[in-house]
Amino acid sequence: MGETFLKLLEGLPLTLKLTFSSVTLGLVVAMALATMRMSGMPALDWFARAYVFVFRGTPLLVQIFLIYYGLGQFRPALQALNLWGFFREPYWCALLALTLNTAAYVSEIIRGGLQSVPRGQIEAARACGMSPFLLYRRIIIPIAVRQALPGYGNEIILMVKATSLASIITMMEVTGIAHKLISQTFRAIEIFICAGAIYLILNFVVTRAIQALEHRLSPHLRDAPVPVQRLDPAISSGVDR
C-alpha cells in the first residue's frame, strides 16, 4: 500500500500544476467576463451571458474533447495559423478547457459578490468625494471579496477534482496513474483509498486556507478581544485550580 501511495504521489505535481494554472488564468478570464456582464453594453453583456450559459450547461469532459479531439478536424487551418503545436498537446488542451470552464462559474461568483455591496455604502463613498478607483479599492472590492470567498473556495475544490478529467486525454496526474495501476493490478479498492486520500488532503488544505483568509478578512464579525481583568484575590484564592 505504501508503494502504491508513493507511485500515486508522482502524479501530484501535475495535478497541482493544472489546478494552480487553471484557477489563476480562470480568475483573469472571469474578471473580464464579469466586467463585460456589468458593463451595460448589450453586445458585451450578451456575449458574457451566452458564454456562461454554454460552459455551465455542458459537461467539462465534452469541452475537453471538443478542444482536444474536435479541433483536430481543422488541423490544416490551425497549422497555417501556427497554432497546431498548442492544440496538439494534451496538457495545453486540458488547461485551456479547465480555464474556460472555471471562468464561467467564477464570473458568476464575482458578479454575485459585486452585487452584494450595499448601494448605500457606494453612495456614501461618492458623497465623500472618492474617485471611482478609490471607491473600488477601499469599499467595493473588500466587501465583494469577503462575500464571494466561500463560493470561490468551493470552486477551487471543484477544480482540484476536475483536473482528474485530464487523465482521460492521457495526462498522468494522480487519477491517471490510479487508472493505470488499477488496470495493471486490479486492486481497485486499495488504489482508490490511496488516491482518494491524496485528493482529500489537498482539498482539506484548500478549505483551511480559504477559512483562514475569510477569518482574516472579517475582523468586524468576530467578538472583540476581552480585556484581561485583574481577578479579585479573594475569589482567585478560593478556587482550587
Binding site: T163, T175, I182, A188
Partner: peptide, 22 residues
C-alpha cells in the same frame, strides 16, 4: 458527505466499475 464531495467523481466511477468487477 465529506469524503464523497472531496474525491473526484471519475475516481469513484473507476472504483465501482473495476472494484465491482473484482
Amino acid at each position: 458527505t465529506t469524503i464523497l464531495r472531496g474525491i473526484p467523481d471519475l475516481l469513484i466511477i473507476y472504483l465501482f466499475y473495476f472494484g465491482g468487477s473484482a
